[in-house]
Amino acid sequence: MSKFSKGKKKKDPAISTAALPDIVFMLLFFFMVTTVFKEKESKKLEIDKVAIKETIDLEKNIKASYFWIGRVPGKVDDFRVQLDDDLINDYSEIREYLVKLRKNPEYSQVWDSRFFNVFKVDKKTEMRIVRKVHDELKEAEAFKVVYSVNREK
């Protein structure tokens, strides 16, 4: 028996957990605020984006169709176009897709104001491919195009 023994062991007072929800909420808010959603990306094509100095913010609350033009992974010079989720085999599919899209009132109402065709194009793409997609857009009367780029500092 130790000299300093206090005899009966004293029970520690319970630590208050009242502040725990606050800490949890604080963490939750922190991550909510600092999270940046990753831009929609193509899973089927490799795209090396261009960086330029003069860019503008893409408008908020827009309706959009997404075009990716890039290399098929593993192949050197096989540039393909992806429209929303699928690779296209023929350029006329673009027109069909847009015409179908326009039948939806959600899209047709904003067709000339807030409907954009968002392009994400690989640096090395030849302009002939971009041109062909543009031609289809003109046929479908979808004239607004934005090129997604990185901002050069």
């Binding site: 600092t34 860019t55 893409l58 543009h134 004239f143």
Partner: peptide, 29 residues
């Protein structure tokens, strides 16, 4: 504690800006 949490919340709400995608806009003829 709640006051401190709210203070932090408001601080981050104000100082954080969402990165909008950067684009170049063009109108086809």
């Amino acid at each position: 504690m709640a006051d401190i949490a709210f203070l932090l919340l408001i601080f981050f709400l104000i100082t954080t800006t969402m990165n909008l995608p950067q684009v170049h806009e063009e109108r086809l003829p």
